[in-house]
């Protein structure tokens, strides 16, 4: 009896310490500041955010108008240029079939998840945070809008760490800490120093059009910042579907990195 009572007290003490460590369980909107960890009391403020409801489907980029420059291409440098050119040569010499580094079930992560057509995305607003769900590979990412910085001890991931702020109806996002396994585009590798800035906003004249203006900077891989804009069209009444790649991996990649048919 004595031992179990001590255990119960011990567990309670641990639980209290855990919550006290983040400022106390009973406190909401810590210090008056909205935080993703303390959302209570801040839900009404979400109503002042723009209406990004429904799901958004990537639209085909329009060809540049006559007289306008062609779509921007990234300008690689150093070993990253060499790697890209080697990849392009492989594509040319093998009818477009190039060995893969990862399985076909590996999600693209940042930034290519922004360019994945055919599977819609949706944005969820909660206090201090915007969460984007991408149907493709069921990817999701968190964009923290509660004023926090990137952590000093950031563990890289395929989505990186994103912080954002609202400028009127525009969400401005800064992402770092992206694993080098991801690509900027097909065959385009980046370094661990990649930094991605996004400006996400509805079209001024058409609320059912959303644009994400992406700027990619990489002091090791890119000779200059690389800009891409993705345009999405709203579907109000759709919802996202499952995408369980492992359940439907009909194109397993063999040891040579080549996709096979099952």
């Amino acid at each position: 009896m004595e031992i179990s009572r001590a255990l119960r007290i011990g567990m309670l003490a641990v639980a209290c310490a855990a919550s006290a460590g983040v400022g106390g369980a009973a406190e909401s909107a810590k210090g008056g500041k909205v935080s993703a960890a303390f959302p209570k009391g801040a839900y009404a403020q979400l109503n002042s955010l723009p209406d990004w409801g429904g799901v958004w489907v990537l639209a085909r980029p329009a060809a540049p108008a006559a007289g306008q420059p062609p779509r921007e291409r990234p300008v690689f440098k150093g070993e990253y240029l060499a790697r890209y050119e080697a990849w392009a040569a492989q594509v040319k010499n093998n009818n477009g079939v190039v060995p893969r580094e990862t399985s076909n079930c590996m999600p693209p992560g940042m930034p290519n998840m922004l360019a994945t057509a055919q599977y819609p995305i949706e944005f969820l607003f909660t206090p201090g945070r915007v969460t984007a769900h991408h149907e493709a590979w069921m990817q999701w990412r968190s964009i923290y809008t509660d004023g926090r910085d990137h952590p000093a001890d950031l563990e890289p991931g395929i989505f990186g760490h994103s912080v954002g702020r609202w400028e009127g109806g525009t969400l401005v996002v800064d992402t770092i800490g992206i694993k080098t396994i991801t690509e900027l585009g097909a065959g385009m590798k980046h370094s661990s120093k990649l930094r991605i800035t996004e400006r996400i906003q509805q079209d001024a004249k058409d609320a059912d059009t959303l644009r994400i203006e992406v700027t990619m900077e990489d002091p090791d891989a890119l000779a200059q910042p690389y800009h891409v804009t993705h345009t999405f069209k709203r579907q109000r009444d759709w919802s996202l579907m499952e995408f369980i790649c492992a359940e439907n991996d009909r194109n397993p990649v063999n040891e040579a990195g080549l996709s096979t048919l099952k």
Binding site: P61, N95, G96, V97, A115, A117, N251
Partner: peptide, 11 residues
């Protein structure tokens, strides 16, 4: 539509 293909149809 452009697609960051999880596999290549033509492949």
């Amino acid at each position: 539509l452009p697609a960051a293909a999880h596999h290549s149809v033509a492949g």
